[in-house]
Design a protein around this nucleic acid. Structure first.
Length: 476
RNA sequence: GCCCCCAUCGUCUAGUGGCCUAGGACACCGCCCUUUCAAGGCGGCGGCGCGGAUUCGAAUUCCGCUGGGGGCACCA
């Protein structure tokens, strides 16, 4: 039998790291097993579902490289199916119509909680007389459909990650499976779809574990064999609280926008709850597909550690060729208004690649390229602290003056030549190299920290470099 | 309140009764390299939540406790 799994997000927001990890594990499992991944949009909460969210989720999955074999299916397109199945359950005596109003149920729940009792439904409508039912209908009440859960025995979930989890059926409620407007609720729609779509495995977040026994009873009532279940632990923030907006960026788009690489996100997310052995940390998607298995998935929750993410992103940036890196950097230069849209001339591309080469070992996130290279594109913004600390130092003015004069003589404007010339200059001035190089760095970049000096001068070009050094001489 | 899950360095984890004086990675600290910042190299710090039990032997099994988390919706 072909393995079939699904990723079934509710489109109420962006794809966040927790959802992405669930999607990734489903994808890895499907690919490793030669199975199929289905994308199903669970949009039955019509108040909160949006088209934007659907687009965002699909975009993020595409960016991560998580391709699906079927879908996206949408539950709102499948209402007839759920209605037919719900009616069937009523006919076979596994469900009943419930005329209770939300307000009275809510009031009862509150009262029960106050009395220290169980908040479960009191099952009044299970035993409605025809006369009572007629009264409700005459009064304009529209019923929900409730599933009749078993009162006795246990429901056992054999979870692929957690092992055997036993639930007492007496704890289970008669849950609503259909709303009066014909839209199903989650537990019902998910089961109907998982049956219809032939799911063999359901891999989802641990928050769904308590739903599983309820769903298993629905499978049984529907005459279907339940799939295998695997519940993934939660992802936490640095404070061990569930990851949320308060921890900063949590959407995949946000990580993309500041310049994390998809290869980083995939590798990092894979490791949040899974490990291959005792020493391998870096995995390409192909390695992952090769090695992933559910039996190596961890049970305990994992903290999302940005420091490690940053390290890994730096690693993957360093793995890129200069040409690749430049291509990935272009959107960031454009986004900052440093580079116009449209075709890039060959000479300009060479210049961008030179910048990429010189920044490759310095980038943690692609977005940092802007602050690192903006002085190549526009006039210098002198950092007052840098001016004070370096240009106002004893000897800075003299160094700049001498440097400007010396550089003006150089025709072969390459970093090797510049290196030799400026070292010689330091020697002539009787200064340590740093004493000469730092003022020049501040002169051309405005800051004390910049890409390597000689390469920077080369990229900037002779005319601009000399101009800036002369100008900085005035500030010194 | 009730049900369920979880528990190894700060973090991600390896570990399934002796191979563990607990391994790796990130972070941190030190040294080296060095024109700044990085990157890189070398070294270091650092952990089995607590209490019982089983066993010749427990990070590994069992029980309890504590702590963290999830769920108990006409949300998913």
């Amino acid at each position: 039998m072909t393995i079939r799994v699904r990723f079934a997000p509710s489109p109420t927001g962006y794809l966040h790291v927790g959802g992405a990890r669930t999607a990734l594990y489903n994808w890895l499992f499907a690919r490793h097993e030669g199975g199929e991944l289905i994308l199903r949009i669970e949009d039955t909460d019509r108040a909160r579902s949006t088209e934007d969210a659907i687009r965002a989720i699909i975009d993020s999955m595409t960016w991560l490289g998580l391709d699906c074999d079927e879908g996206p299916y949408r539950q709102m397109d499948r209402l007839d199916l759920y209605a037919a199945k719900a009616t069937g359950l009523v006919e076979t005596g596994r469900a009943y119509l419930c005329y209770c109003e939300p307000e009275e149920l809510e009031a009862r729940r509150r009262a029960a909680a106050a009395a220290g009792g169980s908040p479960r439904y009191y099952r009044r409508c299970r035993a409605l007389t025809p006369a009572e039912e007629a009264d409700y209908i005459a009064g304009g009440r529209r019923p929900t459909t409730r599933f009749i859960s078993r009162d006795e025995g246990e429901t056992i979930v054999d979870d692929l990650i957690r092992g055997r989890v036993v639930f007492d059926n007496a704890e289970l409620d008669d849950l609503i499976i259909m709303r009066p407007d014909g839209i199903p609720t989650y537990n019902f729609a998910a089961v109907v779809d998982d049956i219809e779509m032939g799911m063999t495995h359901v891999i989802r977040g641990e928050d769904h574990l308590p739903n599983t026994p309820r769903q298993m009873q629905i499978y049984e009532a529907l005459g279907a064999e339940p799939p295998a279940f695997a519940h993934l632990s939660m992802i936490l923030g640095a404070d061990k609280a569930p990851l949320s907006k308060r921890h900063g960026a949590t959407s995949i788009e946000a990580f993309r926008d500041v310049g994390y690489l998809p290869e980083t996100m995939v590798n990092f997310l894979a490791l949040l709850g899974w490990a291959w052995d005792d020493k391998t940390t870096l995995f390409s998607p192909a390695d992952l597909k090769d090695r992933f298995s559910l039996d190596k998935v961890t049970r305990s929750p994992a903290v999302f550690d940005t420091a490690k993410l940053d390290w890994m992103n730096g690693h993957y940036i360093r793995q890129l060729t200069v040409a690749e890196l430049a291509q990935r950097l272009i959107p960031f230069w454009r986004g900052a208004g440093l580079l116009p849209d449209g075709e890039i001339a060959a000479a300009e591309l060479r210049r961008l690649e030179a910048m990429a080469a010189v920044c490759r070992e310095r980038l943690v996130k692609l977005g940092e390229i802007v602050a690192l290279t903006d002085f190549f594109f526009k006039d210098v913004d002198y950092d007052p602290a840098a001016v004070d600390k370096v240009l106002h130092k004893e000897g800075a003015a003299a160094a700049l003056e001498a440097a400007a004069a010396k550089l003006a003589q150089i025709d072969d404007w390459t970093h090797d030549v510049l290196d030799t010339a400026l070292r010689a200059l330091a020697d002539e001035l009787g200064q340590k190299p740093g004493k000469v190089f730092q003022p020049i760095r501040v002169a051309i970049s405005g800051r004390t920290v910049s890409p390597p000096l000689f390469e920077s001068l080369e990229i900037l070009g002779k005319e601009t470099s000399v101009d800036r050094i002369k100008k900085a001489r005035e500030l010194a």
